[in-house]
């Protein structure tokens, strides 16, 4: 069971809803993931082409906790506004703070991210903050009241996996709130690594939605989350330089 603020989730896999080939594939991938939390974005409606289908139409949103992101925001003020717009839907009181500071790398702006987190915590939201893998910043976000910190494994959509496992493990070690690895995951192996390092969950989007078979990848990711978590809880053996026999050394018949 994963607890974030006053919310509890059975699944440690959060799933994004962007870039699926079609809504039916998206629904099938979401179903098979057994996720409890879906992320989405807030955007202007296309008033000149109103008949375009909406991704929520295919999903029974009542089944899920909805986690709107503030993607598109470049300042704390913009992020707070987006969070309020999402909240006005009456469908959610969680928010994923995401304030991008660089268009090329899509890395977060640490100063504005911290400000937005402070403000939204004051406003009473359940705040999950997307951050770089900066250990000190993760600590500051927690002090600001973030209900979870979401360090990126590597740049958004890059699929590069966990490029700084040391930082991630330091963030996990110091954190008193859940750590959800967000962004940059490419494969189930990356997910297992994140979970074995002690992360409390992962948020995936492109790794599933842009896979050759998103539904199959969704299942693979679900199993990877479970496997990695079980491995973490079970406690792996320490690495040793030389062999240690697993068969008895006594009674060898020669």
């Amino acid at each position: 069971m994963l607890t974030i603020g006053d919310k509890q989730f059975n699944s440690r896999l959060f799933l994004g809803t962007g870039k699926y080939p079609d809504f039916d594939t998206q629904k099938a991938a979401v179903d098979v993931s057994e996720t409890d939390v879906l992320t989405f974005s807030v955007r202007r409606m296309n008033i000149f082409e109103p008949s375009q289908p909406n991704f929520l139409e295919k999903l029974d949103v009542e089944q899920y906790s909805l986690l709107p992101n503030t993607a598109g925001a470049k300042t704390a003020q913009e992020a707070v506004r987006t969070a309020k717009l999402a909240n006005a839907s009456g469908l959610c009181d969680m928010v994923k703070v995401e304030v991008i500071g660089c268009d090329k790398t899509l890395l977060p702006d640490p100063v504005e991210t911290l400000k937005a987190t402070e403000e939204l915590v004051k406003e009473g939201y359940t705040v999950l903050t997307y951050t770089s893998d900066d250990v000190v910043l993760a600590q500051k976000l927690e002090e600001a009241g973030a209900h979870a910190v979401m360090p990126g494994a590597s740049p958004i959509g890059s699929g590069q996996g966990i490029i700084n496992p040391l930082n991630l493990s330091l963030i996990v070690e110091q954190a008193n709130v859940p750590v959800i690895v967000d962004a940059g995951i490419g494969s189930p192996q990356d997910v297992v690594t994140a979970m074995e390092l002690g992360s409390d969950g992962v948020l995936l989007n492109s790794a599933v939605s842009a896979a050759a078979d998103p539904v199959k990848m969704s299942e693979a990711m679900k199993l990877a989350v479970k496997s990695g978590r079980l491995g973490y809880e079970a406690g792996r053996i320490p690495k040793k330089r030389y062999a240690t026999a697993s068969s008895p050394m006594e009674g060898i018949s020669v």
């Binding site: 994004g16 809803t17 962007g18 870039k19 699926y20 998206q26 992320t39 989405f40 974005s41 807030v42 955007r43 202007r44 409606m45 008033i47 909406n54 991704f55 929520l56 909805l66 709107p68 992101n69 993607a71 717009l85 999402a86 839907s89 469908l91 958004i156 962004a183 948020l203 995936l204 989007n205 492109s206």
Partner: peptide, 10 residues
């Protein structure tokens, strides 16, 4: 007037 909705995102 701003009219916004939820769209897919991560």
């Amino acid at each position: 007037v701003e009219l916004v909705q939820f769209v897919g995102g991560g």
